[in-house]
Design a protein around this nucleic acid. Structure first.
Length: 406
DNA sequence: TGTCCACTGGAAGGGAGGGCTT
DNA sequence: AAGCCCTCCCTTCCAGTGGACA
Protein backbone atom coordinates (compact mmCIF):
# COMPACT_ATOMS: atom_id res chain seq x y z
CA UNK A 1 0.00 0.00 0.00
CA UNK A 2 1.46 3.36 -0.94
CA UNK A 3 1.49 6.26 1.47
CA UNK A 4 -1.18 7.99 -0.56
CA UNK A 5 -3.35 4.93 -0.38
CA UNK A 6 -2.93 4.75 3.37
CA UNK A 7 -4.04 8.35 3.76
CA UNK A 8 -6.86 7.79 1.34
CA UNK A 9 -8.07 4.75 3.19
CA UNK A 10 -7.93 6.49 6.53
CA UNK A 11 -9.82 9.49 5.27
CA UNK A 12 -12.50 7.59 3.42
CA UNK A 13 -13.32 5.08 6.14
CA UNK A 14 -15.30 6.31 9.06
CA UNK A 15 -13.15 6.45 12.18
CA UNK A 16 -14.03 4.13 15.03
CA UNK A 17 -13.01 6.92 17.39
CA UNK A 18 -15.45 9.53 18.51
CA UNK A 19 -13.03 11.47 20.66
CA UNK A 20 -9.58 9.98 20.90
CA UNK A 21 -8.24 12.66 23.21
CA UNK A 22 -10.15 11.04 26.04
CA UNK A 23 -7.56 8.27 25.98
CA UNK A 24 -4.53 10.48 26.33
CA UNK A 25 -2.52 10.67 29.55
CA UNK A 26 -3.35 14.21 30.50
CA UNK A 27 -7.10 13.96 29.98
CA UNK A 28 -9.03 14.45 33.19
CA UNK A 29 -12.63 13.20 32.95
CA UNK A 30 -15.59 14.85 34.62
CA UNK A 31 -16.13 11.81 36.78
CA UNK A 32 -13.34 9.80 38.35
CA UNK A 33 -14.80 6.44 39.32
CA UNK A 34 -13.69 4.85 42.60
CA UNK A 35 -11.80 7.86 43.78
CA UNK A 36 -14.65 9.67 45.49
CA UNK A 37 -13.09 9.36 48.92
CA UNK A 38 -9.72 10.77 47.84
CA UNK A 39 -11.35 13.59 45.91
CA UNK A 40 -13.42 14.52 48.93
CA UNK A 41 -10.45 14.52 51.22
CA UNK A 42 -8.37 16.68 48.93
CA UNK A 43 -11.32 19.00 48.34
CA UNK A 44 -11.79 19.42 52.08
CA UNK A 45 -8.16 20.31 52.51
CA UNK A 46 -8.06 22.75 49.63
CA UNK A 47 -11.43 24.32 50.35
CA UNK A 48 -9.73 26.58 52.87
CA UNK A 49 -8.46 28.50 49.86
CA UNK A 50 -11.98 29.59 48.97
CA UNK A 51 -12.22 31.44 52.23
CA UNK A 52 -8.93 33.11 51.59
CA UNK A 53 -6.89 30.86 53.84
CA UNK A 54 -3.84 28.80 53.08
CA UNK A 55 -4.57 25.11 52.63
CA UNK A 56 -2.29 22.61 54.34
CA UNK A 57 0.44 21.00 52.33
CA UNK A 58 -0.56 17.56 51.13
CA UNK A 59 1.40 14.44 50.49
CA UNK A 60 -0.14 11.81 48.23
CA UNK A 61 1.20 8.29 47.94
CA UNK A 62 0.22 5.43 45.74
CA UNK A 63 1.55 3.26 42.93
CA UNK A 64 1.59 4.37 39.29
CA UNK A 65 -1.79 4.64 37.64
CA UNK A 66 -3.81 4.78 40.84
CA UNK A 67 -5.24 8.15 39.99
CA UNK A 68 -3.10 10.48 42.10
CA UNK A 69 -2.35 12.90 39.32
CA UNK A 70 -5.87 12.76 37.98
CA UNK A 71 -7.38 13.47 41.40
CA UNK A 72 -5.01 16.38 41.97
CA UNK A 73 -5.72 17.90 38.58
CA UNK A 74 -9.43 17.32 38.91
CA UNK A 75 -9.78 18.99 42.28
CA UNK A 76 -7.48 21.84 41.32
CA UNK A 77 -9.44 22.48 38.17
CA UNK A 78 -12.70 22.62 40.10
CA UNK A 79 -11.12 24.77 42.75
CA UNK A 80 -9.81 27.34 40.34
CA UNK A 81 -13.14 27.46 38.52
CA UNK A 82 -14.91 28.12 41.77
CA UNK A 83 -12.23 30.54 42.87
CA UNK A 84 -12.61 32.49 39.68
CA UNK A 85 -16.34 32.89 40.25
CA UNK A 86 -15.62 34.19 43.72
CA UNK A 87 -13.05 36.56 42.37
CA UNK A 88 -10.16 34.88 44.12
CA UNK A 89 -6.71 35.10 42.63
CA UNK A 90 -5.59 31.52 42.58
CA UNK A 91 -3.26 29.67 40.28
CA UNK A 92 -1.56 26.33 40.24
CA UNK A 93 1.57 24.85 38.81
CA UNK A 94 1.93 21.23 37.83
CA UNK A 95 5.45 19.83 37.52
CA UNK A 96 6.39 16.28 36.80
CA UNK A 97 9.79 15.84 38.40
CA UNK A 98 10.56 12.71 36.45
CA UNK A 99 11.30 14.80 33.42
CA UNK A 100 12.97 17.64 35.33
CA UNK A 101 15.39 15.99 37.61
CA UNK A 102 17.27 19.06 38.78
CA UNK A 103 16.29 21.69 41.27
CA UNK A 104 16.88 24.39 38.72
CA UNK A 105 14.59 22.85 36.11
CA UNK A 106 11.82 22.24 38.56
CA UNK A 107 11.88 25.89 39.57
CA UNK A 108 11.90 27.08 35.98
CA UNK A 109 8.91 24.85 35.25
CA UNK A 110 7.01 26.22 38.25
CA UNK A 111 7.65 29.76 37.07
CA UNK A 112 6.54 28.80 33.60
CA UNK A 113 3.32 27.24 34.84
CA UNK A 114 2.22 30.23 36.86
CA UNK A 115 2.91 32.60 34.02
CA UNK A 116 6.41 33.88 34.72
CA UNK A 117 7.71 32.80 31.32
CA UNK A 118 10.89 33.16 29.33
CA UNK A 119 13.44 31.87 31.82
CA UNK A 120 16.45 30.10 30.30
CA UNK A 121 16.85 26.32 30.54
CA UNK A 122 20.32 26.77 31.98
CA UNK A 123 22.70 29.51 32.94
CA UNK A 124 21.26 31.34 35.91
CA UNK A 125 22.06 30.62 39.54
CA UNK A 126 19.31 28.52 41.16
CA UNK A 127 18.88 31.15 43.83
CA UNK A 128 18.18 33.75 41.18
CA UNK A 129 15.31 31.66 39.80
CA UNK A 130 13.98 31.17 43.29
CA UNK A 131 14.06 34.92 43.91
CA UNK A 132 12.29 35.55 40.62
CA UNK A 133 9.63 33.06 41.62
CA UNK A 134 9.11 34.70 44.98
CA UNK A 135 8.92 38.17 43.50
CA UNK A 136 6.53 37.07 40.79
CA UNK A 137 4.20 35.34 43.23
CA UNK A 138 4.30 38.24 45.64
CA UNK A 139 3.50 40.77 42.96
CA UNK A 140 -0.20 40.10 43.34
CA UNK A 141 -2.09 39.01 46.36
CA UNK A 142 -2.75 35.43 45.46
CA UNK A 143 -2.61 31.79 46.39
CA UNK A 144 -0.39 29.47 44.41
CA UNK A 145 -0.71 25.72 44.66
CA UNK A 146 2.30 23.79 43.45
CA UNK A 147 1.89 20.15 42.51
CA UNK A 148 5.13 18.21 42.45
CA UNK A 149 4.45 14.91 40.76
CA UNK A 150 6.88 12.00 41.01
CA UNK A 151 8.72 13.91 43.65
CA UNK A 152 10.92 10.93 44.50
CA UNK A 153 12.83 11.37 41.24
CA UNK A 154 13.81 14.89 42.15
CA UNK A 155 14.89 14.02 45.66
CA UNK A 156 16.80 10.94 44.59
CA UNK A 157 18.76 12.79 41.95
CA UNK A 158 19.33 16.18 43.48
CA UNK A 159 18.42 16.07 47.13
CA UNK A 160 15.75 17.94 48.98
CA UNK A 161 17.21 21.46 48.90
CA UNK A 162 14.53 22.94 46.71
CA UNK A 163 11.85 21.10 48.59
CA UNK A 164 13.14 22.57 51.79
CA UNK A 165 13.15 26.04 50.28
CA UNK A 166 9.65 25.56 48.93
CA UNK A 167 8.29 24.43 52.26
CA UNK A 168 9.63 27.63 53.75
CA UNK A 169 8.66 29.92 50.91
CA UNK A 170 5.75 31.39 52.85
CA UNK A 171 8.19 33.05 55.22
CA UNK A 172 9.55 35.04 52.30
CA UNK A 173 6.19 36.07 50.94
CA UNK A 174 4.44 39.16 52.22
CA UNK A 175 1.17 39.19 50.37
CA UNK A 176 0.79 35.78 48.76
CA UNK A 177 0.80 32.20 49.91
CA UNK A 178 1.94 28.90 48.54
CA UNK A 179 0.62 25.42 49.21
CA UNK A 180 2.39 22.29 48.10
CA UNK A 181 1.03 18.99 46.91
CA UNK A 182 3.70 16.31 46.73
CA UNK A 183 2.95 13.14 44.82
CA UNK A 184 5.07 10.00 44.88
CA UNK A 185 4.72 6.37 43.96
CA UNK A 186 7.68 5.26 46.00
CA UNK A 187 6.27 4.37 49.37
CA UNK A 188 9.65 4.22 51.05
CA UNK A 189 10.38 7.71 49.83
CA UNK A 190 9.67 9.35 53.18
CA UNK A 191 12.86 7.85 54.52
CA UNK A 192 15.02 9.94 52.24
CA UNK A 193 13.49 13.19 53.36
CA UNK A 194 14.81 15.55 55.94
CA UNK A 195 12.43 15.40 58.89
CA UNK A 196 11.68 19.12 58.74
CA UNK A 197 10.72 18.86 55.08
CA UNK A 198 8.69 15.76 55.74
CA UNK A 199 6.69 17.22 58.58
CA UNK A 200 6.00 20.40 56.69
CA UNK A 201 5.05 18.58 53.51
CA UNK A 202 2.84 15.99 55.09
CA UNK A 203 0.58 18.18 57.15
CA UNK A 204 -2.02 16.06 55.42
CA UNK A 205 -1.57 12.85 53.52
CA UNK A 206 -3.71 10.79 51.23
CA UNK A 207 -2.96 7.19 50.37
CA UNK A 208 -4.13 5.74 47.07
CA UNK A 209 -4.60 2.00 46.92
CA UNK A 210 -4.36 0.15 43.61
CA UNK A 211 -7.52 -0.43 41.60
CA UNK A 212 -8.82 -3.96 41.30
CA UNK A 213 -9.93 -5.48 38.00
CA UNK A 214 -13.56 -4.48 38.46
CA UNK A 215 -12.65 -0.89 39.19
CA UNK A 216 -10.35 -0.68 36.20
CA UNK A 217 -13.13 -2.14 34.12
CA UNK A 218 -15.45 0.64 35.26
CA UNK A 219 -12.88 3.26 34.35
CA UNK A 220 -12.29 1.71 30.95
CA UNK A 221 -15.99 1.44 30.28
CA UNK A 222 -16.42 5.12 31.00
CA UNK A 223 -13.55 6.11 28.75
CA UNK A 224 -14.53 3.71 25.99
CA UNK A 225 -18.00 5.19 25.83
CA UNK A 226 -16.53 8.65 25.37
CA UNK A 227 -13.74 7.67 23.04
CA UNK A 228 -15.31 5.22 20.63
CA UNK A 229 -18.40 5.15 18.51
CA UNK A 230 -21.25 3.03 19.76
CA UNK A 231 -21.03 -0.73 19.35
CA UNK A 232 -17.33 -0.63 18.47
CA UNK A 233 -15.83 -2.01 21.66
CA UNK A 234 -16.67 -5.52 22.79
CA UNK A 235 -17.24 -5.84 26.48
CA UNK A 236 -14.94 -8.87 26.66
CA UNK A 237 -12.09 -6.73 25.32
CA UNK A 238 -12.58 -4.26 28.15
CA UNK A 239 -12.64 -7.09 30.66
CA UNK A 240 -9.39 -8.43 29.29
CA UNK A 241 -7.65 -5.07 29.33
CA UNK A 242 -8.80 -4.56 32.91
CA UNK A 243 -7.54 -7.98 33.93
CA UNK A 244 -4.14 -7.36 32.36
CA UNK A 245 -3.76 -4.01 34.07
CA UNK A 246 -4.96 -5.35 37.40
CA UNK A 247 -2.24 -7.95 37.31
CA UNK A 248 0.30 -5.21 36.97
CA UNK A 249 -0.47 -3.66 40.32
CA UNK A 250 -3.74 -2.00 39.32
CA UNK A 251 -2.35 0.56 36.92
CA UNK A 252 -5.27 2.32 35.23
CA UNK A 253 -3.02 4.32 32.97
CA UNK A 254 -1.69 1.11 31.44
CA UNK A 255 -5.23 -0.07 30.85
CA UNK A 256 -6.11 3.13 29.04
CA UNK A 257 -2.93 2.85 26.96
CA UNK A 258 -3.97 -0.64 25.98
CA UNK A 259 -7.35 0.58 24.90
CA UNK A 260 -5.94 3.43 22.85
CA UNK A 261 -3.32 1.32 21.08
CA UNK A 262 -5.87 -1.44 20.48
CA UNK A 263 -8.09 1.16 18.86
CA UNK A 264 -5.25 2.25 16.63
CA UNK A 265 -4.64 -1.35 15.62
CA UNK A 266 -8.29 -1.83 14.76
CA UNK A 267 -8.20 1.26 12.63
CA UNK A 268 -4.99 0.29 10.91
CA UNK A 269 -6.31 -3.17 10.06
CA UNK A 270 -9.53 -1.72 8.77
CA UNK A 271 -11.52 -3.79 11.25
CA UNK A 272 -14.79 -2.54 12.59
CA UNK A 273 -14.83 -3.93 16.11
CA UNK A 274 -12.38 -3.82 18.98
CA UNK A 275 -12.00 -7.39 20.24
CA UNK A 276 -9.90 -9.29 22.75
CA UNK A 277 -7.30 -10.11 20.13
CA UNK A 278 -6.69 -6.42 19.56
CA UNK A 279 -6.03 -5.92 23.25
CA UNK A 280 -3.50 -8.72 23.17
CA UNK A 281 -1.78 -7.22 20.16
CA UNK A 282 -1.80 -3.86 21.89
CA UNK A 283 -0.19 -5.37 24.97
CA UNK A 284 2.84 -6.49 22.98
CA UNK A 285 3.06 -3.23 21.12
CA UNK A 286 2.83 -1.02 24.20
CA UNK A 287 5.56 -2.94 25.97
CA UNK A 288 7.83 -3.09 22.96
CA UNK A 289 7.45 0.57 22.16
CA UNK A 290 8.17 1.63 25.67
CA UNK A 291 11.32 -0.46 25.94
CA UNK A 292 12.62 0.45 22.52
CA UNK A 293 12.08 4.12 23.13
CA UNK A 294 13.78 4.02 26.51
CA UNK A 295 16.78 2.09 25.22
CA UNK A 296 17.25 4.16 22.10
CA UNK A 297 17.31 7.38 24.10
CA UNK A 298 19.96 6.15 26.51
CA UNK A 299 23.31 7.98 26.41
CA UNK A 300 26.24 6.15 24.85
CA UNK A 301 27.83 4.83 28.03
CA UNK A 302 24.53 3.56 29.35
CA UNK A 303 23.90 1.74 26.09
CA UNK A 304 27.36 0.19 26.25
CA UNK A 305 26.76 -1.04 29.78
CA UNK A 306 23.34 -2.39 28.85
CA UNK A 307 24.84 -4.16 25.87
CA UNK A 308 27.44 -5.69 28.20
CA UNK A 309 24.72 -6.86 30.54
CA UNK A 310 22.83 -8.48 27.67
CA UNK A 311 26.03 -10.14 26.48
CA UNK A 312 26.80 -11.34 29.98
CA UNK A 313 23.42 -13.03 30.10
CA UNK A 314 23.95 -14.63 26.70
CA UNK A 315 27.42 -15.91 27.56
CA UNK A 316 26.38 -17.19 30.92
CA UNK A 317 26.75 -20.93 30.82
CA UNK A 318 24.26 -22.52 33.14
CA UNK A 319 23.97 -20.93 36.53
CA UNK A 320 26.82 -18.43 36.43
CA UNK A 321 25.59 -15.22 38.01
CA UNK A 322 25.86 -11.84 36.34
CA UNK A 323 27.59 -9.49 38.76
CA UNK A 324 29.00 -6.00 38.49
CA UNK A 325 32.50 -7.42 38.04
CA UNK A 326 31.46 -9.60 35.11
CA UNK A 327 29.65 -6.76 33.41
CA UNK A 328 32.71 -4.58 33.91
CA UNK A 329 35.05 -6.99 32.17
CA UNK A 330 32.70 -7.54 29.22
CA UNK A 331 32.13 -3.81 29.01
CA UNK A 332 35.84 -3.16 28.86
CA UNK A 333 36.22 -5.68 26.05
CA UNK A 334 33.46 -4.01 24.09
CA UNK A 335 34.97 -0.57 24.62
CA UNK A 336 38.31 -1.87 23.45
CA UNK A 337 36.80 -3.36 20.30
CA UNK A 338 34.81 -0.27 19.44
CA UNK A 339 37.50 2.19 20.43
CA UNK A 340 35.67 3.91 23.27
CA UNK A 341 37.36 4.95 26.47
CA UNK A 342 35.80 2.94 29.31
CA UNK A 343 34.44 4.70 32.38
CA UNK A 344 35.50 3.74 35.88
CA UNK A 345 33.91 1.16 38.13
CA UNK A 346 32.32 3.88 40.21
CA UNK A 347 30.56 5.24 37.18
CA UNK A 348 29.56 1.76 35.99
CA UNK A 349 27.92 1.27 39.35
CA UNK A 350 25.87 4.43 38.93
CA UNK A 351 24.87 3.48 35.42
CA UNK A 352 23.69 0.08 36.63
CA UNK A 353 21.57 1.88 39.22
CA UNK A 354 20.15 4.17 36.52
CA UNK A 355 19.21 1.20 34.37
CA UNK A 356 17.52 -0.32 37.38
CA UNK A 357 15.56 2.89 38.00
CA UNK A 358 14.34 2.70 34.43
CA UNK A 359 13.08 -0.81 35.07
CA UNK A 360 15.21 -2.39 32.36
CA UNK A 361 17.12 -4.53 34.82
CA UNK A 362 16.93 -5.42 38.47
CA UNK A 363 20.13 -5.23 40.45
CA UNK A 364 19.76 -5.97 44.15
CA UNK A 365 22.90 -5.88 46.25
CA UNK A 366 23.76 -9.34 47.52
CA UNK A 367 26.57 -10.72 49.58
CA UNK A 368 28.35 -13.74 48.19
CA UNK A 369 30.22 -14.16 51.46
CA UNK A 370 33.77 -15.13 50.72
CA UNK A 371 33.25 -13.89 47.20
CA UNK A 372 32.42 -10.37 48.20
CA UNK A 373 29.44 -8.08 47.93
CA UNK A 374 28.06 -7.10 44.57
CA UNK A 375 24.98 -6.40 42.53
CA UNK A 376 23.20 -9.39 41.06
CA UNK A 377 21.88 -8.30 37.71
CA UNK A 378 18.78 -9.70 36.01
CA UNK A 379 17.01 -8.61 32.85
CA UNK A 380 13.53 -7.25 33.49
CA UNK A 381 12.52 -6.85 29.87
CA UNK A 382 12.81 -9.17 26.86
CA UNK A 383 16.33 -9.18 25.44
CA UNK A 384 14.85 -9.23 21.95
CA UNK A 385 13.41 -5.71 22.22
CA UNK A 386 16.71 -4.33 23.47
CA UNK A 387 18.70 -6.01 20.75
CA UNK A 388 16.35 -4.61 18.14
CA UNK A 389 17.49 -1.12 19.12
CA UNK A 390 21.16 -2.03 19.15
CA UNK A 391 20.93 -3.72 15.77
CA UNK A 392 19.75 -0.45 14.29
CA UNK A 393 22.71 1.42 15.77
CA UNK A 394 25.56 1.32 13.35
CA UNK A 395 28.17 2.00 16.00
CA UNK A 396 27.53 -1.39 17.60
CA UNK A 397 27.51 -3.44 14.42
CA UNK A 398 31.04 -4.81 14.93
CA UNK A 399 30.38 -6.30 18.34
CA UNK A 400 27.01 -7.65 17.32
CA UNK A 401 28.33 -9.30 14.17
CA UNK A 402 30.95 -11.09 16.20
CA UNK A 403 28.33 -12.07 18.73
CA UNK A 404 26.27 -13.80 16.07
CA UNK A 405 29.22 -15.83 14.89
CA UNK A 406 29.65 -17.41 18.30
C1' DT B 1 34.78 -16.50 65.57
C1' DG B 2 37.29 -13.60 62.83
C1' DT B 3 38.86 -12.64 58.15
C1' DC B 4 38.56 -10.79 53.94
C1' DC B 5 36.50 -10.54 49.26
C1' DA B 6 34.39 -7.65 45.78
C1' DC B 7 32.33 -4.65 45.68
C1' DT B 8 28.86 -0.43 47.23
C1' DG B 9 27.91 4.21 47.61
C1' DG B 10 29.06 8.89 49.79
C1' DA B 11 31.82 13.09 49.03
C1' DA B 12 34.30 16.24 46.49
C1' DG B 13 35.67 17.98 42.43
C1' DG B 14 36.72 18.72 37.32
C1' DG B 15 35.86 20.06 32.76
C1' DA B 16 32.94 20.58 28.62
C1' DG B 17 29.09 22.96 26.88
C1' DG B 18 26.01 26.45 27.81
C1' DG B 19 23.71 31.15 29.39
C1' DC B 20 23.52 35.42 32.20
C1' DT B 21 25.22 40.01 33.71
C1' DT B 22 28.35 43.74 33.46
C1' DA C 1 35.21 39.61 26.98
C1' DA C 2 35.30 38.37 31.80
C1' DG C 3 33.41 36.31 35.53
C1' DC C 4 29.70 33.76 37.31
C1' DC C 5 26.74 29.91 37.58
C1' DC C 6 24.13 26.21 35.46
C1' DT C 7 23.81 20.90 34.01
C1' DC C 8 25.75 16.54 32.67
C1' DC C 9 28.98 13.10 32.74
C1' DC C 10 32.70 11.64 34.73
C1' DT C 11 36.98 10.74 38.10
C1' DT C 12 39.41 9.99 42.46
C1' DC C 13 39.41 8.63 47.00
C1' DC C 14 37.79 5.90 50.49
C1' DA C 15 35.12 4.06 54.43
C1' DG C 16 31.82 0.50 54.95
C1' DT C 17 29.79 -4.26 54.69
C1' DG C 18 27.14 -9.27 54.56
C1' DG C 19 28.27 -13.57 54.89
C1' DA C 20 31.11 -18.06 53.13
C1' DC C 21 34.91 -19.94 54.58
C1' DA C 22 39.20 -21.23 57.36
Amino acid sequence: MSVDEIFEKLLSSESIFKNKRVLSHDYVPEILPHREREIQKLAYILATALKGGKPSNVFMYGKTGTGKTAVARYVLKKLSERGERLGLDLSYAYVNCRYRKTNYRVLVKICDEIGCVGLPETGLPTDAIFDKLIRYIDMKEKLVIIILDELDWLVKTSGDDVLYQLTRINNELDRSQVSLIGITNDLKFREYLDSRVLSSLSEESIVFSPYNAQQIYDILKQRAEMAFRDQVVEDSALRLAAAIAAQEHGDARRAIDLLRVAGEIVERNGDSKLLEKHILMAKDEVEKDLIEMTVSELPLQEQLILLSIVKAHNNRNGSKKVTTGIVKSIYEEICHELGYKPVTLRRINDIISDLEMLGIISAPVVSLGRYGRTKLIHMEVPVKSIMKVFEKEERFSDVLAENNKK
